[in-house]
Design a protein around this nucleic acid. Structure first.
Length: 170
DNA sequence: GAAAAGATTACCT
DNA sequence: GGTAATCTTTTCC
């Protein structure tokens, strides 16, 4: 979950042919070991196999009609990218994990790729002075109370409901 | 082989 | 604020 905080402010860059779509990550959620809400809770399956890959692996899965993207931190653990602020020239809605992937063009084909050398790239950038807020995770029924959701305080691209509690330690 | 649930989103009242 | 859409993966018989 340390990585979940470090990813805040990082740039997500997707190569789309000649174009490069970029957005700045403003909201994440951590899914850790022995976490009942995690897809890895019941062991490896065909869907979550890339989540057991090495750190830096992209885990993309489908839910309902959309796909969501995660960055693997340790085998079996990952950080869900929930929202981002559109970069220069990027238009579209990137508020929410499904819309973020749709707007940036991330698909199931990117599942298992490397976020350093792959088509979908994460560039850690210097975070500004924004504070980090934490709150309960959303959209899940098990382990929802754990405060593993992180966001940049006051950023308008953070999805609702917004976390409110300012993180205790700087 | 059949049934249930889901890390969501959009649209209705 | 509540519910439906929609379909894949997982789970159970």
């Amino acid at each position: 979950m340390r990585v979940a905080r470090e990813l805040l402010g990082a740039w997500l860059v997707v190569r789309q042919g000649q174009r490069r779509l970029s957005a700045r990550i403003v909201e994440t959620e951590a899914y850790v070991a022995r976490d009942a809400a995690s897809h890895t809770f019941r062991g490896p399956t065909r869907r979550n196999r890339s989540m057991f890959g090495p750190p830096g692996t992209l885990y993309v899965y489908r839910i309902h009609q959309v796909v969501c993207a995660n960055v693997v931190t340790q085998p079996g653990q990952a950080v869900l990218l929930r929202a981002a602020e559109p970069g220069p020239g990027l238009r579209g809605d990137t508020r929410g994990p499904g819309r973020l992937c749709r707007t940036l063009g991330i698909t199931l084909l990117d599942d298992g790729s490397d976020v350093v050398h792959g088509r979908v790239e994460v560039r850690s950038g210097a975070r500004r002075t924004e504070r980090i807020v934490v709150g309960p995770r959303v959209g899940i029924s098990r382990g929802a109370r754990r405060r593993l959701r992180y966001a940049l305080d006051g950023n308008r691209w953070v999805s609702l409901p917004r976390p409110r509690r300012v993180r205790p330690t700087a």
